[in-house]
Design a binder for these strands. Structure first.
Ligand SMILES: [Mn+2]
Ligand SMILES: [Mn+2]
Ligand SMILES: [Mn+2]
Ligand SMILES: [Mn+2]
Lengths: 222, 222
DNA sequence: AAATAAATTTAGGCTGGTCTAAAAATGATT
DNA sequence: AATCATTTTTAGACCAGCCTAAATTTATTT
């Protein structure tokens, strides 16, 4: 069964929304917003994906991926993230530059290609944004990370990923000298506005807004 | 101006046909054959490419690329060949395996990506089939090669490329132990059927049919 | 339980890219 | 020069993927 790039993007969007959201199932309107398409167009595509048995679809109900649909969605995520690693590790792009190219590369069709790319890159477990890379069987390393904003205690942590992938946010992190793998020491937490005073790799103190903190993923220093 | 992958494939086909053929200009029927599309579909697309000023098109006349069209066609050829080098040099694919993947990769849109890929690969001048790779400005190293079938004299030559890219032909060469860069010594030329007796890298004699010889590109041993 | 608001689907239309069948133009043959 | 064959274009249709506007269903208020 042939699957178009457009269909792949819908599957990926459904997968992303259903894993980010709390309740199971994804609404037409959330897909419409996520994909920058009108709701009517989404309904159209949902019927096609349903015909191909890639999603569970009942009129007016939230949709979800079938086993096959999820398998495909995860395969696309795997490709996207591996290509991002390639672009950064091999071609020296910055972490805020890789997304748009990966958005195209993820649709290249060849299982052999992606397995060889994986081997070439040394089977990385995480992409440049700290997102986990599913293995060839579709298994994701489930990370035990937390958003910085969920933590009030002072202490030492490691910055391992971002929740937000927009260029502006990534550039902001770069501008304050924060990159994946850095040590973060929480020195102060202001409970009235949720902001933090932190130290990055023992450098002078740095204020972080609640909004930024909510998009930083950290783990305990081991 | 946006150019679709389909349009890019047409431009590439026109470029290939106009450089292979003797007379200038490309016919609707030759494009139809090359692209496995019906002539009516080709006419349709020719009008669109003409509207975009990528080709010179007059009803019932052979078409040719404009300056802009040729620039784009060469850029696609560059991308195709650089990706083929990547697949072979970095991902260890065989020379008969790379074409279909490159056919997809050539349409990835990012000038920066292709320049970095070029640098990563060490600015190769030829692809795995011996085809010249245009530089970033679109200039092709014009090679002074000849088909083996054009040569009758005994002597020493170097195998530098192929005229035919089909998998079966490439596998045949691999099976007789012939690869790019090998030394070829012409020991005998049979003028009645155009076949050859050659030695590859000084190994025992090997018969080569006229058909095969016409698809082998060689140059004088320097 | 009605009324209103919001989400979703249907209906109809458009573009890109393909097709088949028929018409028109060009080229070759007598 | 007229006829026949080949090539090319036109006409009309279809599918994927999008849109707007209108109809329908579901959710929220009162
Ligand atoms: Mn995509
Ligand atoms: Mn990423
Ligand atoms: Mn192509
Ligand atoms: Mn090649």
């Amino acid at each position: 069964m042939e699957i178009s790039s457009t269909e792949e993007n819908y599957l990926k969007a459904i997968y992303a929304l259903q894993s980010s959201g709390d309740k199971p199932g994804v609404s037409t309107s959330s897909l419409s917003e996520h994909l920058n398409n009108k709701a009517a167009s989404v309904t159209d595509m949902l019927k096609r994906l349903s015909d191909k048995k890639l999603i569970h679809y009942k009129k007016y109900k939230a949709v979800s991926l079938t086993k096959q649909g999820e398998k495909l969605a995860i395969a696309i995520v795997r490709k996207h993230r591996l290509w991002e690693v390639f672009l950064m590790e091999k071609l020296n792009f910055k972490w805020d530059e890789v997304h748009d190219m990966a958005e195209q590369l993820e649709h290249i069709k060849s299982d052999e290609l992606i397995e060889r790319l994986d081997a070439f890159l040394g089977q990385p477990k995480y992409d440049p944004h700290g997102d986990p890379i599913p293995n060839a069987k579709g298994v994701l390393p489930k990370p035990k990370t937390s958003a910085l904003s969920n933590i009030q205690n002072k202490g030492h942590y490691i910055f391992v990923g971002v929740n937000e992938h927009h260029v502006d946010f990534l550039r902001h992190l770069t501008s304050i000298g924060l990159k994946i793998g850095d040590q973060i020491k929480i020195e102060e937490h202001n409970s009235y506005d949720g902001s933090y005073l932190i130290r990055i790799n023992k450098k002078p103190g740095q204020y972080i807004s609640h909004k930024v903190a909510s998009n930083l993923l950290i783990e305990m220093k081991s």
